[in-house]
């Protein structure tokens, strides 16, 4: 069983700082493994526990500093790691990101059975990259995956958590899965040990290695671009009252009454 696990390094959204001009301050912001991808990794490692001879290759596209995150995943029990990195990949939207990652998987792990992504990345929260990769490889996809029900060497059965309920599906390989968060914290021990992981080679893959043209990757290869970014400022006129309980109740009552309601 060959698994490609796609993970992304994201800025910690709980640690966002603003410059004076209301632009995002990028320096000094902590980078973390995308929280959803921690569950994707957990899912891949669960499969490895169940099926012998499972080999997990982690793919990430990003700057060199993402190596630390890859080492951690190796220490958790993933087998190989690939850093897809090139200056020319910078500024990629989900289309160009999907295309580049799909090409990397095609080049380095052509006989994969499963690709596992997180459902969303918390920085962009587009949930698009997974389906884009599946589309470029022209393979089946199952999004919003919650639980692993069954797995063998031909197919996998999972539940999906959707707007209107829970669906159970079965699919034969190859397939790409997008994994939702679990209800518990991922808590695997570093079985391989950091030392072992430090010894492992991380494969670095650039534009040449993928055989893509510069105009098909990064900002140039992206159909969308940000024309303007601005801070989200509320248009509510915040008024704060520190009153006695009685006065608070009166104020609350007035405000509720001032709303014209039809379903009361």
């Amino acid at each position: 069983m060959k698994i490609a696990l796609c993970v992304k390094q994201v800025p910690d959204t709980n640690d966002i700082k603003w410059t004076e001009n209301n632009t995002l301050q990028r320096e000094g912001v902590e980078s973390i493994l995308n929280p959803f991808d921690a569950y994707a990794a957990e899912f891949a490692l669960d499969i490895k526990d169940k099926l012998k001879n499972t080999e997990i290759t982690v793919f990430t596209m990003g700057p060199n500093q993402a190596q630390d995150m890859l080492r951690k995943l190796l220490a958790l029990g993933c087998d190989n790691a690939v850093l897809i990195s090139d200056r020319k990949f910078a500024g990629a939207d989900t289309y160009a990101t999907g295309k580049t990652i799909a090409q990397a998987i095609k080049t380095l792990l052509p006989d994969f059975d499963l690709i596992i992504c997180g459902q969303f990345a918390v920085d962009g929260d587009t949930a698009q990259t997974g389906p884009c990769i599946a589309s470029f490889l022209d393979i089946a996809q199952v999004t919003y995956v919650k639980e692993l029900v069954n797995i063998d060497n031909k197919s996998i059965e999972v539940t999906r958590e959707l707007d209107d309920g829970t669906e159970r599906v079965k699919v034969t390989y190859p397939v790409l899965l997008c994994k939702l968060q679990d209800d518990f914290e991922p808590s695997r021990p570093l079985i391989n040990g950091i030392k072992e992981a430090l010894k492992k080679e991380i494969r670095i893959c650039d534009l040449n290695c993928l055989g893509l043209e510069p105009e098909n990757v990064g900002l140039k290869g992206s159909p969308t671009y940000v024309s303007k970014a601005f801070r989200n400022i509320s248009n509510h006129n915040a008024q704060k009252y520190e009153l006695s309980t009685e006065e608070s109740v009166k104020l609350l009552d007035e405000k509720i009454k001032s709303v014209e309601v039809k379903n009361a």
């Binding site: 959204t13 995002l24 929260d125 159909p223 969308t224 940000v226 024309s227 970014a229 989200n232």
Partner: peptide, 13 residues
């Protein structure tokens, strides 16, 4: 984006 902290206006080529 960024968990709602930042708004981005996006165009398509």
């Amino acid at each position: 984006t960024f968990g709602g902290e930042l708004m981005a206006t996006i165009l398509c080529k």
